[in-house]
């Protein structure tokens, strides 16, 4: 876009999600973006985050919404709906952290509110901007794997209570490892296969992380797609506190032409520090968050649909909901045909 166009004004609603800590500096430094302010339920958290990013802290959601074209919502999962509805009624475009909501009803309400208000809604699935995963999708699209028959995915990590306590409070998070990690691979599979999920089987337990029992910490999911493909997800919070990085995401894609393995976070160093610092694996690969935020800003600037929609977020929530119903039933659960 021409450099003389005014910047896109972006606000951040809530610093409670760990990803906000990554998004804020990216937005603050992004050309063509005016990071107009940060709101948080805790005013001191808003002002300290704002000070660090050279922007303004707000103690009123409405006041910030009056100053921006778009907002990034990084509140606890269960609080997304109220914030999205407020933003939509103020005519502000929305990038909402995943999972879009903790219930299908809330996710549906979020999509409807944005549609009614005529504002853009994007779900934060940054993995779609991971170059290794984009390469896999391109290869599949070009037929390089033949017909894709199945996929085996792993998205495991540390228990995120080390970032914020609400992640393991089911009233605010909606659930544990299944809520936290199934949506990424479910979305990537839908995106790569170009097909919807029609059946979900899932199992879960509460043994990991010192038998932490407020939410499920271990989970395995099997998905069937409308085109006949099938896929599995290990979504467990299986990385102990001693693990050198937060976790990872990998896919083994299996087709009639062979197999491709993608380890999305394989580009990392191994750093051995003092005994106290231990071992760490800092990533040096490309930052997918940047690509995702640039897409949201461009969609707001150009008034076009973003590459990931609210409907994509709703579909992922439907898959998570079906996974919980399957866990309860001990049987696979059919998903109703997509209604929108």
């Amino acid at each position: 876009m021409a450099g003389d166009e005014r910047s896109v004004r972006i606000g951040v609603l809530s610093m409670e999600h760990v990803h906000a800590g990554a998004y804020v500096p990216l937005l603050a430094a992004m050309p063509g973006v005016d990071l107009a302010g940060i709101w948080d339920a805790d005013p001191s958290r808003a002002s300290s985050a704002a000070a660090g990013a050279g922007t303004t802290g707000f103690d009123s959601v409405g006041a910030l919404l009056r100053e921006v074209d778009g907002v990034v919502i990084t509140a606890p999962n269960a609080e997304h709906r109220a914030l999205v509805e407020e933003a939509a009624s103020a005519g502000v475009h929305v990038l909402c952290e995943k999972p879009l909501a903790t219930t299908v009803d809330d996710a549906r309400a979020i999509v409807d509110a944005c549609e009614r208000a005529g504002v853009l809604l994007m779900t934060a699935f940054p993995s779609r901007w991971n170059p290794a995963l984009r390469s896999l999708r391109s290869t599949i699209e070009a037929g390089g794997l033949g017909d894709v028959v199945c996929m085996e995915g792993v998205n495991t990590g540390a228990m995120p209570d080390l970032h914020a306590a609400w992640f393991v409070d089911p009233a605010r998070s909606g659930g544990g490892a299944v809520t936290d990690h199934v949506v990424h691979l479910a979305d990537l599979y839908r995106w790569m296969l170009g097909a919807e999920v029609v059946e979900v089987y899932a199992v879960a337990n509460r043994i990991l992380q010192e038998r932490f029992d407020r939410v499920e910490t271990g989970g395995l999911v099997s998905l069937r797609f409308a085109n006949g493909a099938f896929a599995t997800i290990d979504c467990s919070w299986s990385k102990p506190r001693s693990y050198p990085t937060w976790g990872g995401l990998s896919i083994d894609a299996i087709g009639t032409g062979g197999a491709i393995r993608v380890d999305a976070f394989r580009q990392r160093l191994a750093v051995y520090g003092t005994r106290e610092a231990g071992i760490s694996w800092p990533a040096w690969g490309p930052d997918a968050d940047r690509g995702m935020l640039e897409e949201f800003v461009a969609a707001v600037r150009d008034r076009r649909q973003p590459a990931v929609s609210g409907l994509d977020g709703l579909r992922a929530v439907e898959i998570v909901d079906a996974a919980y119903r399957s866990i309860a039933a001990g049987e696979p659960v059919r998903l109703a045909p997509a209604s929108a």
Partner: peptide, 17 residues
């Protein structure tokens, strides 16, 4: 398809998966 790839999910009596 000319290939095979099988994936099983087990639950154990211990509660492990």
């Amino acid at each position: 398809a000319g290939i095979d790839h099988a994936m099983a999910i087990l639950t154990h009596e211990s509660g492990a998966i």
